[in-house]
Design a protein around this nucleic acid. Structure first.
Lengths: 229, 229
DNA sequence: TAGATTGTTAATCGATTAACAATC
DNA sequence: TAGATTGTTAATCGATTAACAATC
């Protein structure tokens, strides 16, 4: 799958070499570190940071080691340094233009999410085909008809799109996003999107999350019943 | 693997034996299968099902094998049988009472999510401390003051709660949920919750999802630049 | 029987963990 | 120096994949 070329591209291989599981946790570390910085904490040990983030200290140190050696033995990590390094790895310095399609309650909630700018994103447009919504202002942006998507996406160079429509509309929205050059899709609609090969979709589904929680809850309840019936 | 074993111990062990990665994908399979059933499909091969769900056929068959042998060699799986078996594994037959705390746009969107009943959940109460919201009806439920949580949670036996408040309120909401006997928390607030040891928290964070997408997008863009500059 | 597809095995790959030497 | 904590190693554990015998 991933090619580990031991030829020439060592830096690329090193960066590309950050494991997927680690990538998935970097935003979490970043968030916790920013909170610490805002609380006035300047230095933190792997133990303290790990506890706050809810991971083991060994895992945290391993994860951070893929970015380089930014700690001081016997002391810990400088919070601001870690924030910068993780931010750099995640590309927070750049500013990704993002569009949201679907301005129901969910789209509204996402648009009003405050953290876009500080995390490397710029919300450039909201689309919906409901006449009652088009033209209204949400989160400082005027809602546009969905038909405007291609022009806006091309003009702004949008590569990341969020689908917040009902499930029934999601696939055709995804098709249009792909057609408009969007390569990464965050899908909140409860359907599995079919997209061509280079396009990356992440799915966030309330029901799935609840079902996973319920599965574990069931296990724990069973466990208790068996131990103390 | 063997069928449902004979001793209570063994049943527990068998259930406990479904790997975490598989548990995470069962809701996805369930969703796809229900869609197939609604489209009138009666039988499906691992190849077809895997393609629709976006996983490899080998992985799908391995996942299903942890539940038992419910396919027919040379033929495939009966859609209805798989739906039942996965549903049973996920505990969809039972009906988990769920509460949502925070009835802003996000809470609104979650409350109006239609799939609760069909997936083994029953939304029993919505809480918010905004005077403009308390007493109003959302998704067929009257929004209650947050102070009512303990009584309602205990009365209904609520073990699963959803946090859809701003980050600033999330920790104290979580504390109250735990205090009220809630053991599983789905957290949409952009903070890392601290909870005592038996409590399970799943965090859904827009920024994290976008950052992971952006990381991969960056990689692919770099890749293209290197190949065709 | 011939073709198709499952269920399972064994190999590989990737992630986690514990432990500790390096070093502040 | 003594105590603390990182960065890294090696062992373990879990997940994925390819392949194919079993069998419909």
């Amino acid at each position: 799958m991933t090619h580990r070329a031991d030829t020439g591209r060592d830096l690329g291989a090193r960066r590309g070499g950050v494991p997927e599981a680690t990538v998935g946790r970097l935003p979490l570390y970043h968030r916790v570190l920013v909170d610490l910085a805002e609380a006035g904490v300047a230095t933190v040990s792997s133990d303290a940071l790990a506890t706050t983030a809810g991971v083991s200290p060994a895992k945290l140190r391993k994860d951070l080691s893929f970015l380089g050696s930014y700690g001081t033995r016997g002391v810990g990590y400088e919070v601001s340094v870690l924030i910068d390094q993780i931010g750099a790895e995640l590309g927070i310095s750049s500013e990704w233009p993002v569009v949201i399609v679907g301005v129901g309650h969910l789209g509204h909630a996402l648009a009003n999410y405050g953290g876009f700018a500080s995390r490397g994103f710029r919300l450039v447009a909201l689309f919906d085909d409901d006449d009652a919504l088009v033209g209204t202002e949400v989160a400082g942006l005027v809602v546009r008809p969905f038909a405007d998507l291609p022009v806006v996406a091309r003009a702004e160079g949008v590569l990341i799109g969020v689908v917040a429509t009902p499930g029934s509309a999601a696939q055709q929205v995804a098709d249009a996003l792909v057609e408009a050059g969007v390569n990464s899709i965050l899908n909140f609609a409860p359907v599995v999107l079919a997209v061509p090969s280079p396009v990356d979709v992440r799915r966030v589904d309330l029901a799935s999350e609840l079902q996973i929680l319920a599965f574990h809850q069931q296990r724990r309840t069973d466990e208790l019943q068996r131990v103390a019936p």
